[in-house]
Amino acid sequence: MPKPIRQRIADEMTGAALPFVAFCIALNLTAGQITAALKIPLYLDSIGTILVAVLVGPWSAIICGSAANLLAAAFGNPSMIFFIPVVIVIGAFTGFLARKGWFRKWYLVVIGGILQGVLAALVSAPISAYVFGGVMMAGTDFLVLYFRSVGNNLLNSVIYQGLASDPVDKLVSFLIVFFLTKNLPQRLLSRLHGAANVG
């Protein structure tokens, strides 16, 4: 009989994994500070979720992303709460790819990052369109307006905007996680359940 979800999450979040997931939630929320200090035009707000998906497992990644969005809402970015379904998909899909060994080869990481970006764009589009009318209070809103002004409906415009920006962000996040985890000592990795996913 398959294990209940609650038990699967508890199984993953043992020992060092629990503090590590907590660190990655905090990293999701502060990565923007690093990119801002370095003047890099990326958010990397799911880098912690991707790290957890690779080094710990998909269930922990889902928890990591959801908790990060909940806390982001609490810290003054309330719209993040509505995008919890998107981070659930990001965590689950990345965890699935990692278990299939996609984080061991750079070209699989590139393909995975692009696929993840497309998936994130497709999942977030209905939320952006029907909950927020395509307005995310970001520079990408102009893209939505552009696509609408040339005759597309709202949902399609939001999907096109997502497809234009999400794959780049996710690809960079995937590559960064690949380089970060490539040279980590096996003895450390073995304490996080995800040692077999990298290397």
Binding site: G15, P19, F20
Partner: peptide, 19 residues
């Protein structure tokens, strides 16, 4: 990368100790 690398490595070591 040179900032994230030591940050992630030290966090794993700390997580192991905290765990």
């Amino acid at each position: 990368l040179s900032i994230l690398s030591p940050l992630v490595l030290s966090s794993i070591v700390e997580s192991i100790e905290r765990g």
